[in-house]
Amino acid sequence: MPEPLLELRGLCKNYGALAVTDDVSLTVLPQEIHAIIGPNGAGKTTLIHQISGTLRPDRGSVLFAGRDVTALPVERRARLGLARSFQITSIVPGFSVLENVALAVQARSGSSFRFLRPAGSEAAINRDALAALEAVGLAGAAGRMANALSHGEKRQLELAIAIAMRPRLLLLDEPLAGAGPEETARLIGLLRDLRQRYGILLVEHDMQAVFSLADRISVLVYGRVAATGTAAEIRADPEVRRAYLGEDELA
């Protein structure tokens, strides 16, 4: 087995008496899509926050490419190659779509302590940014203001920003939420492509997408990993059926 890209060891997080993350241990291998499913409020987003560095766990550790990053802030983890998309869209509203992505490209393209040359005319940065927009199907909107995008388009932009970082691991929090059927098909195709290059930790409610994409699936219930396995194993797991999956979804 290859060395895992991401390894969580005994992660715990409480909000008061509520255990939002309860002794979670899991791994994501290079070029693997590991999906996390679970009912609303199961603690999926909170878990992503702890991996990306927005939240500090109460106990346990986060290892990225063999290195303990538990104490590192978000921006350091991002520079190491950990990119995330937010469940609640987080873009720069007053920037154009292209500049939103260009910011992410700029972050991995040498020093940003450059004061005079216009950033908007840096061809190499714009080219990479446009490529990321093309990948998510948003190149046509490159010149528009980000706050003028529809909800679905903002989700695509969110993903383009993450891709533009050229990370080693993508943390995606419900990237398909709010996308129409056509967009969903395109995004599923995109995620399948991306797997060639990155490891992906995917939080998603769209079961069809999860079962068709994921190499492994973990089921999170009340902050605990109730089961981990391949799609087939998860479908067959009686506890998962009881705890989360409606019978009809499995039909």
Partner: peptide
């Protein structure tokens, strides 16, 4: 308008996003 200014402006509007890209 520079790289530096772009980071400044982005951080004014959405600090979380700026941190998330590094």
């Amino acid at each position: 308008g520079s790289r530096f200014g772009r980071v400044l402006r982005a951080a004014r509007e959405n600090e979380r996003r700026v941190r998330a890209v590094g």
